[in-house]
């Protein structure tokens, strides 16, 4: 077993046994860590693997969250079915954005702007969507907090804790498998050089579209979790530009295109933000924005001093070799 696998096993074990020791507050922070690790991993498929910068990625969180929540609130459809619809809606949205962008050769910054435009358009649309609550928000009926009802995703915080943990493990394994698959190589080739990739028989359009669709669908599942965990949805926080930026922070800080990056990034950023908020509150002043300010500063520091992200740097320091995909 490689040292990386051991490290990963230890991390997983820590998260599995944590609820036995940690209080509710710490658990809720760990849920946020895992949530950002999850959506960061999903975003990483599109940007880190296939090289397509999506800056409106929260559109998939929002669509997934709203779809599953609306089905539950209005039709009583349990989350376990709603998540398929959620993923389907997000995949459809992703294919539209991707197909339009890639077919018409919208590249680089322009593509990033296109994704923002779609996300913002959708945000304003949902603000006027009165059936889904509009700006007033969509609220899920809060069920018993003692049950462990996975079908309806209602119940104890511990259930949500282990659910998001399972999702993180799942997406990690999936991404690992993808990186070692033909599709993964195809994406990496497209990311590095599209002309060369095409000359080697790769259908560049299809490769990019697959990445967007998969990333969108997986991100939407994160959205479903978000909706049922927090029980309320507002267009501004489901589709806002800030959310899109939050999604991309962890994988960038951790290391773009790496499997560990999103996890490490979330492990660094969320506790950092929480710690700073707690510290300022302990000092007796309410400083809205201080957490984000620190995110901004750490992002700046990372991009300036560790542009590859923390993980590639740490991996060398820990002597874990240079090939994360291994052989």
């Amino acid at each position: 077993m490689s040292r990386q696998a051991i490290l990963l096993g230890l991390l997983l074990a820590a998260f599995v046994v944590a609820p036995a020791f940690a209080g509710p507050y710490l658990l809720s922070v760990m849920v946020v860590v895992m949530y950002f690790a999850y959506v960061g991993q999903a975003w990483n498929i599109m940007m880190g693997f296939a090289g397509q910068l999506s800056l409106g990625h929260t559109i998939y969180v929002g669509l997934g969250a709203y779809t599953a929540a609306a089905l539950f609130v209005h039709f009583g459809i349990p989350a376990i079915f709603g998540l398929f619809a959620a993923a389907a809606v997000a995949v459809a949205a992703g294919s539209i954005i991707g197909a339009l962008g890639f077919r018409f050769g919208v590249k680089g910054v322009y593509f990033a702007l296109l994704t923002i435009a779609f996300a913002e358009f959708t945000r304003i649309l949902f603000e006027h969507f009165t059936a889904l609550g509009g700006t007033g928000g969509l609220f899920l009926p809060v069920g018993s907090r003692d049950s462990f009802d996975l079908i309806h995703l209602r119940g104890h915080p511990l259930m949500f804790y282990y659910l998001i943990l399972a999702m993180c493990v799942g997406i990690f394994l999936l991404c690992r498998k993808l990186l070692n698959s033909r599709l993964g190589y195809t994406w990496l080739a497209v990311r590095e050089d599209q002309d060369a990739a095409a000359a080697l028989g790769i259908n560049v359009f299809r490769a990019k579209l697959t990445a967007v669709m998969l990333s969108a669908g997986l991100t939407a599942l994160g959205g479903v979790f978000f909706a049922f965990y927090y029980n309320n949805l507002f267009p501004n926080q489901a589709f806002g530009m800030n959310r899109s930026i939050e999604i991309i922070l962890a994988p960038i800080v951790g290391g773009l295109g790496t499997l560990f990056g999103p996890i490490l990034g979330a492990l660094i950023l969320t506790p950092l933000g929480e710690g700073i908020t707690a510290a300022t509150e302990a000092m007796g002043f309410k400083a809205a924005g201080i957490k984000q300010l620190c995110y901004g500063l750490s992002l700046l520091a990372i991009v300036k001093f560790l542009p590859e992200g923390v993980w590639p740097w740490l991996r060398l320091r820990l002597g874990l070799g240079d090939g994360e995909e291994g052989e």
């Binding site: 990496l188 080739a189 590095e192 060369a196 990739a197």
Partner: peptide, 10 residues
């Protein structure tokens, strides 16, 4: 390609 196009990071 005359102007080589390696996948630099692979």
């Amino acid at each position: 390609f005359q102007l080589v196009k390696p996948f630099g990071n692979l």
